[in-house]
């Protein structure tokens, strides 16, 4: 279990994360939903050790968390432009004998011997996802994993995430989109202005989606009608 205890982070005295407490279980897909600027990426950066929290503690199975436990798929991916896709995967899958690159590539169908600079943004995303499977870390943080992917790849990724969770991985992903997140996740946390306001279980999704649609979208539509 990944435990976040009272995590706070401020940027130039402005609080971005406000005493966040979460308990995330292995073998489940956890989602975090929130509007732009609500602090989702900051929370991921704190968990991944990219940012140091001002307060609070993060533990995995009662041990202090280390970067070796985490695979973090960021929104802005980094690649060496003069590296081939195969080299990228080999670097990620070092020491992981259960990752046959060519068999995985039969699914993703990428030109692995070409330089990454020739890849489209969707291909880069697919490569990064493969790399993270090769990394084989117990915790997978996926920040907006469905961005830049076509419909088919999106559907496959959703299924893949569920399979990885079944294998025992702890998956924590973020999205702006309620439909996407309720399809993939077992539990959803709602982040608003740096605070977790709600925690919704899979069986409550339908009711919650209805309420959310009414309260947020209808209010926004009303406001827009007035302004137009």
């Amino acid at each position: 279990m990944l435990t976040l205890e009272n995590i706070s982070f401020a940027y130039q005295q402005k609080a971005v994360l406000n005493g966040i407490t979460l308990r995330l279980e292995d073998g489940l897909v956890h989602g975090i939903l929130g509007p732009n600027g609500s602090g989702k990426t900051t929370l991921f950066n704190v968990i991944a050790g990219r940012l140091q929290q001002d307060e609070g503690d993060i533990r995995y199975h009662d041990r202090r968390i280390s970067t070796d436990m985490i695979g973090y798929l960021e929104t802005n991916l980094f690649f060496y432009s003069l590296m081939t896709g195969r080299e990228y995967l080999e670097l990620h899958a070092r020491g992981n004998n259960d990752f046959p690159i060519s068999k995985w590539n039969d699914i993703f169908n990428l030109p692995l011997d070409h330089l990454i600079e020739s890849y489209s943004s969707g291909m880069k995303k697919k490569l990064a996802i493969m790399g993270h499977i090769g990394l084989d870390r117990p915790i997978m943080l996926l920040d907006e994993p469905f961005n830049n992917l076509d419909l088919e790849a999106n559907q496959f990724l959703a299924a893949l995430i569920r399979m990885l969770a079944k294998k025992g991985k702890l998956i924590f992903l973020s999205s702006h989109f309620m439909e996407v997140i309720t399809t993939v996740c077992d539990r959803v946390q709602v982040l608003q202005k740096g605070t977790i306001t709600e925690m919704v279980q899979r069986e409550e999704f339908d009711e919650w989606k209805g309420q959310h649609r009414f309260s947020q979208i209808e209010a926004a539509k009303k406001q827009a009608r007035k302004l137009l």
Partner: peptide
């Protein structure tokens, strides 16, 4: 051992990338 192997792999990769840069 894993870190040492990983480091060797990384350095080999950097060398290959330098070679590509020179050929470019």
């Amino acid at each position: 051992r894993h870190t040492a192997d990983h480091c060797t792999q990384y350095l080999g990769l950097r060398l290959r990338m330098a070679g590509r840069l020179l050929s470019r």
